[in-house]
C-alpha cells in the first residue's frame, strides 16, 4: 500500500516538475509578452497543483497535508490575480494584445530567437 502511494506521489511530482520545466521553456520560446503570460500560467496552475498533491501524498494524513492544501488554495486565488495585474498593466502600457506572433515587438523578438551574432 505504501509502495502504491509512493509510486503515485513520484508520478505526480515528476509530472509537476515537467510542467514547471515546460513553463520555463514556453517563456523562452513564445514570441511576445501576452503569449508568454500563458506559459507562466502553466507553472502557476498545473505545475503547482501536481507538486502540492505529490507532497501531500508523501506527508499522509497529517497537519502538513492540511497546510499544503491551504498553500494550494491561496495560490489558486492569488496566481490569477497576479497574471491579470501583469496583463492589464501591459494593456494600459500600450502593448497591443491583437499583435499576432512575431515582428511586432522588436525588443521581445531578440530575446525569443537565438542570438544572431556570429
Amino acid at each position: 500500500m505504501s509502495l502504491l502511494v509512493d509510486i503515485a506521489s513520484w508520478l505526480l511530482l515528476t509530472a509537476g516538475g515537467c510542467l514547471m520545466a515546460a513553463s520555463g521553456l514556453g517563456l523562452v520560446r513564445l514570441p511576445n509578452l501576452f503569449a508568454r503570460i500563458h506559459a507562466g500560467g502553466l507553472a502557476d496552475t498545473g505545475g503547482a497543483a501536481l507538486l502540492i498533491l505529490g507532497m501531500a501524498l508523501q506527508a499522509g494524513w497529517t497537519l502538513i497535508t492540511v497546510k499544503l492544501i491551504l498553500v494550494g488554495i491561496f495560490l489558486f486565488f492569488t496566481a490569477p490575480t497576479a497574471s491579470h495585474a501583469l496583463a492589464h498593466a501591459a494593456l494600459l502600457g500600450g502593448i497591443d494584445p491583437d499583435a499576432t506572433a512575431e515582428g511586432d515587438e522588436d525588443e521581445e523578438d531578440t530575446s525569443a530567437s537565438p542570438p544572431r551574432r556570429s
Binding site: 500560467g41 491579470h84 496583463a87 494593456l91
Partner: peptide, 26 residues
Amino acid sequence: FANSITLTPGTVALTVLEDRIHVHAL
C-alpha cells in the same frame, strides 16, 4: 468567472466590465 478564465492556461482576462470580459487567448 474572470479568475477562472485566467486560471485556465491559454486564456487571460485583460479587462473586466459588468457584462463582458476582454480576454487574450493563445
